[in-house]
Design a protein around this nucleic acid. Structure first.
Lengths: 237, 237
DNA sequence: GAACCGATTTAAGGCTCTTGTAAGGTTCTC
DNA sequence: GAGAACCTTACAAGAGCCTTAAATCGGTTC
């Protein structure tokens, strides 16, 4: 359940020895998807291409500083970031944290501390209660397992399709509150989701077919006319 | 929209000056539920009683150290923890982070950095879409839940329609203040809302039907003749 | 590469409840 | 007491959602 070490890590530092040192240490600890970059340009390229789950940024880089790099990354990604800094300047720390960095380590540092902090961040960011163990819940007789996209009802197992699953995830993340059709479309089809309103209805119907006792008389997946849809989950499981 | 500063903060430090300094700074920043403790025993008691949302722990305490205190707290609570340490010993940092602390600050520190880190943690931990109910409040017997567009009264649940919901949201955003009919119309029908004054009245009546004990004698949704309407909310829930 | 199969989308007709309108009533203000 | 501001009620229309079936897409198998 602790897939922290499956995460992709990007290391950005201008000194090759440091890059290598960190990379070696991470790999020794069990991280196996480690990328490195020596400057802002290749770091940005990597972020777009490999979509790392976390980035370790040096403040000092040949073609700019880590802070402006972070700003650039933030244009298209909100991955957590850990800053490395040769100088322990308080101003730098504040700047980094203010920009939305998740942590700040001053060189020289213990590799072990870096790993601990890294894992602390990864756990925090990627193990939100919703995405972790809470994605199995019950609706009356049925058990909805979003981890494996299955609806269990006594013996039988109904698999959820991709769209059905996406809809239920979004609704479950906002269980108890209304989710607008727009928000649902966006969750399912991405930003360019205009025009899918009708399609959404059809999928909602399919979801109801699987999770509701009587699909035409929904008691869990409610329609709120003019506002959106709402998933009612009585108790946590 | 960012209810980070509504969170309860517990400060544990043996030096009263430091406690006071941090408390003052937090209050200045807008935190209004700040508790303090000078030793492990009272800190534990506070955790059980006031259930803080985050704790700032000093490592050195008169009746034990912060790490064992954290272990004790972890027996019954998984609130995020930020360590303060006079000594910048690497071993201590590792120990704290290994125990599941969320951050580690070395004295002396800038108060501003402490607040930034604190808020970073709070945002990370408590900003799951499910946990922050923004708009649930009570009016006498009834509970108005704007997240799910429902008025609860004992057993029964009265759903709000889209227009009713829009009106209540606008009024709630300006609770205690007068909202002009124009502003309400705009909130409900958009910029081109001229000519809906009468319609608004009808909807106001419908809202009153749902939230007022006696709709014809409103005590929560007041009319201010010549000016507009006003929602009276006694206390947050 | 053709045939198949499930998933997804499109489309069209149907239903229901929200909404806006309008008309008459009430209360406040000058 | 007259006019303005606001309330109340009922009802018709259509927006918004449902449902179903057929068409299309995308991947897999032979």
């Amino acid at each position: 359940m602790d897939h922290v070490k499956d995460k992709k890590v990007l290391i950005v530092d201008d000194e090759p020895e440091i890059r290598l040192m960190i990379e070696r240490f991470l790999r020794k600890e069990g991280f196996f998807r480690v990328y490195t970059a020596g400057d802002c340009v290749s770091a940005l390229a990597n972020c777009r291409r490999d979509k790392p789950d976390i980035a370790i940024l040096d403040v000092m880089l040949p073609d700019g500083d880590g802070f402006s790099l972070l700003s650039s990354i933030r244009q298209f990604s909100d991955i957590p970031v850990l800053f490395l800094s040769a100088c322990g300047e308080d101003e730098d720390r504040l700047l980094g944290l203010g920009l939305g960095a998740d942590d700040y380590i001053v060189k020289p540092f213990l590799p072990r501390e870096l790993v601990l902090r890294l894992m602390a961040i990864l756990r925090r960011v990627y193990s939100s209660p919703v995405t972790d163990h809470l994605t199995v819940f019950r609706l009356g007789e049925k058990t909805i397992d979003l981890d494996s996209a299955i609806v269990r009802n006594k013996q039988e197992e109904l698999p959820l399709t991709a769209k059905e699953h996406a809809i239920l995830v979004k609704l479950y993340e906002n269980r108890g509150r209304i989710v607008t059709s727009d928000a649902l479309c966006q969750a399912v089809w991405g930003d360019d989701s205009f025009g899918y309103e009708n399609t959404l209805m059809v999928h909602i119907r399919r979801v109801r077919e699987k999770i509701e006792p009587v699909p035409s008389n929904p008691v869990y997946l409610h329609t709120v006319r003019g506002l959106g849809y709402k998933l009612l989950v009585t108790e946590k499981q």
